[in-house]
Amino acid sequence: MKTQKLQHLAVVLLGNELCNNDWILKFLKKNGGLVELLFITYDSPWINDVDIFQWPLGVATYRNFPVVEASWSMLHDERPYLCNFLGTVYENSSRQALMNILKQDGNDKLCWISARQQWQPQETNVSLKNYQDALLHSDLTLCPVGVNTECYRIYEACSYGSIPVVEDVMTGGNCGNSSVHYNAPLQLLKSRGAPFIFIKNWKELPAILEKEKTIVLQEKIQRRKELLQWYQHFKTE
């Protein structure tokens, strides 16, 4: 049996959330290894767009998040919730601040909010259905930072035409700007013109929600179309 010699090797790496990925350096071709191209998640300072590129996180397929096909109702129906957040709220985190801000103005009654205290690695059928319903029935999806700024929730919201409201702050660790990109965090999404709402502090949220209450359905439909079209292009470009 004849075997062919490996001629080219590229790696897509689900990187560490803190950008601690030094273990792979010795495998890069420039360091004597076989890996010619490395595609890596999160805002790694190694990204040079020559042999190391950023790879978007995407949706959480490991938690059985599905491939979502846009429908007429997804685009055109009135959505009963102003916003949503279903997730873990860590003590003394910006997520806790977000919950407090929502309660202060009573906006938690207008949004689909379901907070838990402990992270769950897997969804149940019920929790996954609730999460998908929340995305589908909310105009906005609140995306606070976790260990990293980039999270699956951003892409999952796009799948359902729910505008991500993204906390645009750097988290701890070694992620950040690189020699060719200076707009971290989320520089890949920003460079592709992501039609999101970026905020630096959740204190900005009440004004955003007040404005949201004044937007008519036709404008929301157009915004959903633009988000879904952008996301489709982003996935295929």
Rank of each mutant, 00 (worst) to 15 (best):
S114Q: 14
D108I: 02
S93P: 02
M74Q: 11
F65Q: 00
R63Y: 03
V89M: 04
V59L: 05
H76Q: 01
V68H: 00
I113Q: 03
W72M: 10
V67K: 00
S114Y: 11
S114A: 12
L82Q: 09
L82T: 06
K103M: 09
N100E: 15
R116V: 11
K109Y: 14
E69Y: 01
C83M: 15
G106W: 08
D105I: 02
S114K: 15
Y90A: 14
N107Y: 14
Q96K: 10
Q96N: 08
E78W: 00
T88Q: 12
N84W: 07
W72C: 09
G87S: 08
F85A: 00
V68N: 02
T61M: 10
L102S: 01
Q118H: 14
N100D: 15
V89S: 05
G106H: 07
N107I: 06
H76I: 05
N107C: 11
I101K: 06
H76C: 04
G87V: 00
Y90S: 15
K103D: 09
S73Y: 11
E91L: 11
R79K: 14
Q104R: 14
N84A: 05
L86R: 06
F65R: 03
P121T: 10
N84F: 05
Y90E: 15
G58N: 06
N84G: 10
Q96G: 07
L86D: 05
M99R: 08
A97I: 15
T88N: 11
P80Q: 07
C111I: 02
V68S: 00
Q117T: 10
